[in-house]
């Protein structure tokens, strides 16, 4: 393996291969770059442009300065959505990761049928959010005394249950990969030194699966913040109290705002703020967990 790897690395640095790559890299890079521009860069720039305008169609806009942003900050519904989203994201982040790690830990022990269990836990992730949300809505509402759209607390825990059910399996797979990569010699050394199960978990396993924790917390945090379809189906923001959707999350608030007459610019401004928020949070979280990772 090692020899082969070195030979391949040598081949890339050889002028015979490097020259054509240097000359022709554009042919390989440009199509992707073009797609990136069309699908991401241009809409992004236009999105920022539009957030400073009043518009109905994007070809007919009028400049309004930072008015849209001021309106966004004045919108109590948006501010409430921010708080509610943060609550959902943090709660689901903790629950999903604890549960996923626990399941992964159990399923890497040699138990009968662990492959079957892995499959069973993973399957929910393959179902689309709307379908899943609809089924869960029916299930949850049929056991509750009043439906989720009447009692905001039910709506909140409904969201958490659905999020966990859907994402635990996915995170579990990542944790299983991380757990399997924990060096056997370290575990063996710990065993020989007489470390207890908790100590092994805390001082050997956790530091070694830190890269998995980084990626899983990143995914569940951003998923929580960006959540839209389950929120739409489960409660659609209801119940409303004094005109504010008690279970409305940020993405739903923005989408609802966009369909309001003369509010598209405001919705666009909210979307820009939303982007900045999610990016900032994700970067902070990455920095925090990365610093805990160990080199093997």
């Amino acid at each position: 393996m090692k020899r082969k790897g070195r030979a391949a690395a040598g081949a890339v640095t050889s002028p015979l291969i490097r020259k054509p790559i240097q000359r022709w890299f554009a042919v390989f890079l440009l199509p992707t770059f073009l797609c990136f521009c069309i699908g991401f860069l241009w809409p992004f720039i236009q999105g920022i442009f539009l957030s400073f305008h009043k518009f109905t169609t994007v070809s007919n806009t009028s400049f309004v300065g930072i008015n849209n942003y001021l309106k966004a900050f004045k919108d109590e519904g948006f501010m409430h959505a921010f708080g509610f989203t943060a609550l959902v994201a943090v709660t689901s982040l903790i629950l999903i990761n604890v549960l996923a790690f626990a399941v992964a830990f159990a399923l890497t022990k040699q138990i009968r049928g662990s492959n079957l269990f892995r499959g069973v836990f993973f399957v929910p992730n393959l179902i689309g959010g709307i379908v899943l949300g609809y089924i869960w809505k029916t299930l949850i509402n049929s056991v509750l005394p009043v439906s989720m759209s009447i009692q905001a607390e039910y709506g909140f825990w409904g969201l958490i249950v659905v999020l966990c059910w859907q994402q635990v399996g996915y995170m579990m797979i990542i944790y299983i990969a991380g757990l399997q990569a924990v060096p056997e010699d370290m575990l063996e050394a710990a065993r020989i030194d007489g470390a207890s199960g908790w100590k092994t978990l805390w001082h050997i396993i956790l530091p070694n699966v830190m890269p998995s924790i980084t990626i899983c917390t990143f995914l569940s945090l951003t998923n929580g913040f960006k959540l839209y379809d389950q929120n739409l189906v489960l409660t659609n923001g209801a119940p409303m109290r004094r005109g504010i959707g008690m279970t409305e999350m940020l993405a739903l608030n923005i989408a609802n705002n966009f369909t309001t007459a003369n509010q598209r610019g405001v919705a666009q401004a909210k979307a820009v703020l939303f982007f900045i928020l999610v990016t900032a949070l994700a970067l902070i979280q990455l920095r925090l967990t990365r610093s805990k990772e160990v080199q093997q």
């Binding site: 009447i150 659609n236 923001g237 409303m240 005109g243 959707g245 609802n256 309001t260 007459a261 509010q263």
Partner: peptide, 17 residues
């Protein structure tokens, strides 16, 4: 009705509660 969808959503939620 101004902002029809939002106004009606408020009414529906109030009726439901």
């Amino acid at each position: 009705t101004p902002d029809v969808d939002n106004w009606r959503a408020g009414i529906v939620s109030a009726l439901e509660q």
